[in-house]
């Protein structure tokens, strides 16, 4: 038995080494279960974040964040900002980002974009995005380990190897349908949303994500940074298809933090101001951001 287990252990080490070589050397078509680094805007966002200090606003959240808060518009109003939004970012990943970057970025205020979707996801997609693009830390390892997802494990192993052997090539921000804008924003080539009907549905809020959310809020506030919760607008038809929006609003209000649901504040046109059900086009972004800044002169943003 002892000889068998020794042999098996040696084989596992051999197989791990082979796996590592495969991840590093094999052509990409064989690496289907790996989220590659440099595939998204987030790689550049984090690169910028590492070099940024002392800003007015830090935006947190999912694609609703990095496609809805344009730092150029805020800059024109004299507000410096960085947008740490990433695809399907759930509070689980936001917590890791905040723990890592809040002190260094030292923002005056955090704008946490809180759409119900981020509370209903398992966090796998966003975990891979974070793992593929940020430096691997114990908190990332623990987060991925708890996901029970092979693609996330592959991504972690691949990223760790690439970082350990300094194999990450220097990428250039992409331009095209989606263009990366300095400060973590992604501008979409102007297009319009074609009306779509949605069946009646409900948000399914995961308790686990609420726990991460609450912990993250407490951490930010303990650092002396105030937080504003903002729900960016989505198309009206999509928003109205959810029957428990009020339930989510109440959940956000229970934090006793300022909470603004822009689906009820700004009235945008589904076709003219969105490019899909969830995301504003640039025209919509401008209207939304101007409204936010306009309100900030009163109270929201800088006081």
């Amino acid at each position: 038995m002892k000889a068998f287990l020794t042999e098996l252990t040696l084989f596992v080490l051999f197989a791990l080494a082979f796996y590592a070589v495969g991840l590093l050397a094999f052509p990409s078509f064989l690496k289907r279960n790996v989220h590659q680094s440099g595939n998204s805007h987030f790689y550049f966002t984090l690169k910028e974040a590492k070099l940024t200090q002392g800003i007015d606003l830090l935006f947190l959240g999912s694609s609703h964040t990095y496609r809805s808060f344009d730092p150029r518009i805020f800059k024109s109003a004299g507000i410096s900002s960085i947008n740490l939004g990433s695809s399907a970012q759930t509070p689980m990943q936001t917590q890791i980002l905040v723990n890592r970057y809040l002190t260094q970025l030292n923002p005056k205020k955090v704008i946490f974009e809180v759409n119900p979707l981020i509370f209903s996801l398992d966090g796998v997609e966003s975990a891979m995005e974070l793992t593929a693009n940020d430096t691997i830390t114990p908190s990332i390892v623990f987060m991925v380990a708890g996901l029970f997802n092979l693609k996330a494990y592959n991504t972690l192993f691949n990223s760790w190897l690439r970082q350990a052997f300094h194999l990450n090539s220097v990428q250039k921000p992409y331009r095209g349908v989606n263009t990366y804008i300095k400060g973590g924003f992604v501008e979409r080539k102007m297009s319009y949303f074609h009306h779509k009907t949605y069946n009646s549905q409900r948000w399914l809020i995961k308790k686990e994500q609420v726990k991460y959310f609450t912990e993250t809020l407490a951490y930010i506030q303990n650092k002396g940074v105030s937080v504003v919760l903002v729900q960016a607008p989505i198309t009206r038809d999509l928003y109205n298809s959810y029957k428990n929006n009020l339930e989510f609003d109440n959940l956000m209000r229970s934090t006793r933090l300022p909470y603004y649901n822009f689906n009820n504040i700004i009235f945008l046109d589904d076709s003219l101001h969105f490019y899909d059900g969830h995301h504003l086009n640039q025209k919509g972004v401008e209207l939304f951001n101007r409204k936010l800044i306009e309100m900030s002169n009163g109270s929201i943003l800088l006081r």
């Binding site: 796996y19 094999f26 690496k31 289907r32």
Partner: peptide, 8 residues
């Protein structure tokens, strides 16, 4: 094992 890891 590599094939399984990549195609699972």
């Amino acid at each position: 094992i590599f094939f399984i890891g990549m195609f699972m």
